[in-house]
Structure formats: structure tokens, C-alpha cells
Nucleic acid binder design. Sequence first.
DNA 1: ACAACATATCAGCGAGGAGTGATATGGCGC
DNA 2: GCGCCATATCACTCCTCGCTGATATGTTGT
Lengths: 114, 114
Amino acid sequence: MAQFVDDRKSATIERRAKLFRGFADPSRLAILGALCNEPLAVHELVERTKLSQPNVSNHLRCLLECGLVASDRHGRFIRYRISSPRITVLLNDVDALLDVVAEGVEACDNYREA
Amino acid sequence: MAQFVDDRKSATIERRAKLFRGFADPSRLAILGALCNEPLAVHELVERTKLSQPNVSNHLRCLLECGLVASDRHGRFIRYRISSPRITVLLNDVDALLDVVAEGVEACDNYREA
DNA sequence: ACAACATATCAGCGAGGAGTGATATGGCGC
DNA sequence: GCGCCATATCACTCCTCGCTGATATGTTGT
């Protein structure tokens, strides 16, 4: 069992926070969610997420740099995929937690609703 | 197995993002991490996290409203605790994912390093 | 080589949220 | 009741991040 350090300055906590921030955006979640089903090229992600193309590219760059997705070139397409099944696990666990706290989260007005 | 919707506007995705944002802050992670070990009163959290007292209170209000922590009054102390073991599970999942992507996350300069 | 498509990059704007400081509320002991 | 401690609340500032629009790079087919 992990032993949680409490000091905010802990490198462990900083890393966790940074990783969580990677997931803490609807656009990136839409992209990651889509990639959990199957690898996709950028223009396909644009279609499905209805985000602008530069926007998708920007998020992909970030996700790529963070190691959350990987890419291969296929002709003039670049196919992106999630880098680890642990990402799917994480998303499923979030849903499991939401089963318990969904109402609270929606009610919480410290964050805007989109 | 959950079926991930890709449209960013999906309520599911919004909820996930909102929940992730709850975890996407070093101060809240420090608080949650400390509470994973044992229930604590506010002034104890202040000591351990080295955050200011109003700051801790603000975060606790948010976490409470979201249903991530619960509280009971004990005399003039208010003891906070995590509301569900699934939170611990989630934090452990993040650490597991960090085992794989830690370097990438640290290297990613789209987010500031705190 | 040129046209068309696929993707990446960059500057700038705007909004949301974290932290602080001052202050308010609430419970306890004397 | 009064002083003290524990906690909550509020207004304000600063900074970070996400989005857009324009443009650059790259790849394929003809």
C-alpha cells in the first residue's frame, strides 16, 4: 500500500497533480476516450470530438509529450493510440468513483459546469 | 466495460473532467493523501501540508461539496476523512500509471512545474 | 513540380481558479 | 460572559491554461 506524503511540495504530489491535470480537461478526455476504443488519426479525432483541428493537435502534442499516447505514421496519416492500458483502468476507476460521488460533483459550484 | 463517448459535450465527459480537476491540484492532493492515512482535523492538515488555514478550509469546502471527503464534529474540532476507499484506489492507479509515464510527465512543459 | 490533403506551430485573447489577508462564526473553559 | 482556539467566508490579485485564426511543414498522387 502506498504511503501518502502530505507535504504539498513533495515531488510525488507534484507529479500526481501534473498527471491529473492531463486528464482534467473535457477535450483531452474526449480524445483519450475515443482512443481507448481504437487508434485514430487526427482528422478522425476532429470529426468525433468536434474540436478544431489545431486544438486537437495541441492536445495531442501535450498527451504525446506526457507519454499518454503514442503515434505512428501511416502514409500521410498519423495514427494515435493510448500508450498503456493503465489509462483505461484509470478512466474506469474514475467512473466507479463517480457512481458514488456524481451528485456531489455536479452540485459543487467551485468549478464551472463546462 | 465502459463505452467511451467522444463528443466533448457529453455529460459523462464533463463529469469526469470535473472530478479530475478535483484531484488536479497539489494542495488538494496533499490533503487527500494525508486523509488517506487517517482522519484529521483542519489544524492538523495545516501543520502537515504547510498550507495556510484559509486555504485548507477552502479546499476542504470544495472536497466536501464534491463528496470526496466527509466530516464530523468532535468538540471544537472537525474531523475530516475520505468518503470512499475508491479514492485510495484512484490515487494508487495514478501512481501505477506514473510508473510508466513519469519521465514524460515531468518533461512535458505544457504545464508549469508548480 | 504542383495541387490537395493531413498535421503542426505560434501569438494573442479571455476566463477560471488558486492563494492571500482580513474578518466572521462557532464551541470550549475559566 | 469573556477570551481563546478552531474553522469558515469573502474580496481581490495573479497566473495559468484553453481556444481561435493564421500560417507553416509535410506527404501523397499526378
